[in-house]
């Protein structure tokens, strides 16, 4: 028995990473994930070596697109027959399969070679944070997200809102009833 058999066991092991896609741009995160799938984060990387890692993506339903892209960006598909072109907007594309956009973006970021599909088979995407236990046991590390997710106003507690320092003081001689809406509705000040 060779005792030095396990000498470089961890350098050649496939590492399992977790990536939280909440409020992440799929185009930017696709570029990041492709590096991990190819194994470019490792010092032993070369073009021919098969040293890619596994990546588990969660919360793919909550990815964020820039500006107005949900409405304006269209996915094109042609059936091959006449008048077979279809344009599905991104929001509809995402509604049908919430894991599809992030997969597509990582595919586009990878080099166009034959082994691209085998690399993509190591990308596991889940729409929620419900991941099977067998997968969770494998995970060791986390990929740092590029953007910090913002917090909605409803997610803050009332104490947090009340204790937050105020930026301006209301003028003393201001009559509150002047702030009336167009429909003559009463306006509450918060």
């Amino acid at each position: 028995m060779a005792f030095n058999r396990v000498k470089q066991w961890t350098t050649f092991a496939r590492v399992w990473y977790l990536f939280d896609a909440k409020w992440q741009d799929p185009i930017i995160s696709g570029r990041v994930l492709s590096k991990y799938l190819l194994g470019k984060n490792k010092p032993i990387y070369s073009v021919g070596s098969d040293c890619g890692d596994y990546v588990v993506v969660i919360n793919s339903k909550e990815i964020a697109l820039k500006d107005d892209l949900w409405r304006t960006y269209n996915y094109f598909h042609h059936t091959g027959y006449a008048k077979g072109a279809t344009y599905t907007p991104a929001w509809e594309y995402h509604e049908n399969d919430p894991t599809r956009i992030i997969k597509n973006c990582t595919k586009n970021a990878l080099p166009p070679k034959i082994y691209r599909n085998s690399l993509l088979s190591r990308l596991l995407v889940f729409p929620d944070d419900k991941v099977p236990k067998d997968v969770i046991k494998n995970i060791t590390d986390q990929i740092q997200p590029s953007m910090t997710p913002p917090k909605r106003l409803t997610e803050f507690s009332e104490d947090e809102i009340q204790n937050f320092p105020r930026l301006f003081e209301w003028p003393k001689e201001f009559i509150i009833d002047d702030l009336k809406g167009e429909n003559n509705q009463t306006v509450k000040i918060i």
Binding site: W23, D25, E62, I63, A64, L65, K66, D67, D68, L69, W70, R71, P89, A90, W91, H94, M147, P150
Partner: peptide
């Protein structure tokens, strides 16, 4: 409404 239900971000 439709495209407004998904998350969006700005620069």
């Amino acid at each position: 409404f439709k495209y407004l239900k998904w998350n969006t971000y700005f620069d």
